[in-house]
């Protein structure tokens, strides 16, 4: 197993354990629906109850994402969002919050084109704690995983229901921070799995690693989130938050007033769901 660098991510999971509860991860696409509104949404996530923030790098071809996140990516790009501006937003966030972990999530090409060494330096300085890069499986670990760990950040691997026992050791070998379990075989925001579906997979994964496990894809409601943290260490919600943005745009994709508070309201509800589950040993 990879050397476990201490980051805001590992500290957060330690805190959750001490508090005896599961965590809430929230995904939004950087710069959706535009830079200013996106920043307002980002700034309020932790106060609304998000334990960690997955911050999506907009990409023209998000092939593991469903319609909601695809559209959010294209909206952000249309408004001129870039990876450099994404890091700027994180710098803004860090001025007020040095505790909540931020994980950049997305596809490899924008990072590759930015240049790995300079990107890792800029991201670290901006306050990024880890990476989830959908199209970098362990087979391509030399690209970003190993350099990111060497630079003192976490590289989080996805595991899926299709990741069988034979393959799991390979996937967790260099994983750090936590394991992200993709709870369905599908794209984001479509199907949903029940905690009964998820539990056997998590049990399987835990035989191969001591890392905490966050569960994502298809978690939409406070009840889904609560069910998820009964078996997982954290629940990640993305498409449902993005949908709040989508539902509050005018015909030109410009944000209608009050969009950020609406996103934050759903985050609070999800957080309440997550916090309703007591995970203290023996509870």
């Amino acid at each position: 197993m990879a050397q476990q660098t201490e980051t805001r991510i590992t500290k957060m999971f330690d805190r959750l354990k001490a508090e005896g509860r599961g965590g809430l991860g929230t995904f939004i696409t950087a710069g959706d629906p535009d830079y200013d509104t996106g920043l307002e949404i980002l700034m309020g996530l932790a106060n609304a109850g998000a334990d960690m923030i997955e911050f999506g790098i907009p990409f023209s071809d998000p092939m593991a994402d469903g319609p909601a996140i695809q559209a959010s990516s294209l909206r952000a790009l249309k408004k001129g969002m870039t990876l450099a501006k994404t890091l700027n937003m994180v710098r803004e966030f860090r001025k007020q919050d040095d505790v909540t972990p931020i994980i950049l999530m997305g596809y490899y090409n924008p990072i590759y084109i930015y240049g790995i060494d300079i990107f890792l330096a800029d991201a670290k300085e901006a306050g990024i704690d880890g990476y989830i890069v959908v199209d970098l499986p362990p087979e391509e670990e030399n690209e970003l995983c190993k350099p990111a760990i060497a630079a003192g950040m976490n590289f989080i691997y996805l595991t899926a229901p299709t990741t069988d026992d034979e393959r799991l050791p390979r996937v967790v070998e260099n994983a750090s921070g936590f394991i992200y379990f993709v709870s369905i075989t599908g794209i984001t925001g479509t199907k949903s799995a029940t905690s009964a579906d998820i539990a056997p997979h998590l049990e399987r994964i835990r035989k191969h690693t001591n890392l905490p496990i966050a569960v994502g894809f298809g978690i939409k409601t406070p009840k889904n989130a609560a069910d998820t943290v009964k078996v997982g260490d954290a629940a990640v919600v993305g498409s449902a938050l993005v949908k709040v943005i989508t539902d509050n745009l005018d015909e030109n994709d410009n944000p209608m007033p009050g969009i950020a508070p609406k996103v934050h309201k759903l985050v609070s509800e999800l957080a309440a769901g997550v916090r309703s589950v007591n995970k203290r040993i023996g509870a």
Binding site: V134, D135, P137, E139, A160, T162, V171, V182
Partner: peptide, 11 residues
């Protein structure tokens, strides 16, 4: 190379 999501890797 093989730059695909984990769900597809086993396939």
């Amino acid at each position: 190379g093989r730059y695909v999501a984990e769900t597809l890797m086993p396939l």
